[in-house]
Design a protein around this nucleic acid. Structure first.
Length: 196
DNA sequence: CCAGACGTTGTT
DNA sequence: GTCTGG
DNA sequence: CCAGACGTTGTT
DNA sequence: GTCTGG
């Protein structure tokens, strides 16, 4: 699936990367997905970017990403919802072009260009005490024993899970800004670096 | 009723 | 598609 | 959100 | 300046 939920009625470029837990049940863009299409987004950490204090000369030093993870580095699931987006129907049935392209027509699910696309978004909530030092929001982390309820419980039960994960099992360490470069990937990117 | 919005780790 | 604002 | 790209009449 | 990829 692609990160960035696109409501069924929206243009394909509509990209909702997060949904607020406080309003996810009411917002038109999310209500149906919350009701019927909840999912788990696996991860072993997430990043919050923090403005660093200016240096002695008063120059801004940009932002530093902090990786938030479990102290034992176990993977976890974040609460997500998903949607299926279909390209709009062609306005008029193109009469007289039936033989165009050798009759391959629609329906062959070779799905190369913009066939149906599944998109998802991650639910956010208030930060716990650890993350509050870094940012004013954080992803909803589910306990393993909550995952079944999130996926298959009724909406009231699912909604009851949308609270900040307790801080005591989590840690946060500064990492390289290269962690956000699409050109770079590797385990060294999550090694702690000098903070501030 | 119709027109326009519909979202958030963002921003002035 | 569905809700809000006017 | 941030980092990095942002182009084509070319080529292997 | 703005878009894409992650």
């Amino acid at each position: 699936m692609e990160w960035g939920l696109t409501p069924r009625w929206a243009d394909e470029s509509f990209d909702l990367i997060n949904a607020r837990a406080e309003t996810v049940r009411e917002k038109r863009s999310f209500a149906d997905a919350f009701e019927r299409r909840r999912c788990l987004v696996p991860a072993d950490g997430f990043y919050e970017w923090v403005e660093r204090p200016d240096d002695s000369a008063g120059r801004s030093s940009g932002k530093r990403p902090y990786r938030v993870a479990f102290a034992d580095d176990r993977p976890f699931a974040m609460a997500g919802i998903y949607e299926r987006w279909e390209p709009p129907e062609p306005e008029t049935t193109q009469t007289g072009l039936g033989a165009f392209g050798g009759g391959s027509e629609e329906g062959d699910d070779t799905d190369d260009s913009d066939g149906p696309v599944e998109t998802f978004t991650i639910v956010t909530t208030e930060p716990n005490a650890l993350v509050a030092d870094l940012h004013h929001r954080m992803a909803v982390i589910l306990d393993p024993d909550e995952e079944g309820t999130w996926l298959r419980g009724d909406p009231d039960e699912a909604a009851a899970l949308l609270d900040p994960y307790p801080a005591d099992e989590l840690t946060a360490h500064p990492v390289s800004t290269r962690v956000n470069s699409p050109a770079v990937d590797g385990p060294e990117l999550i090694e702690p670096v000098g903070g501030d």
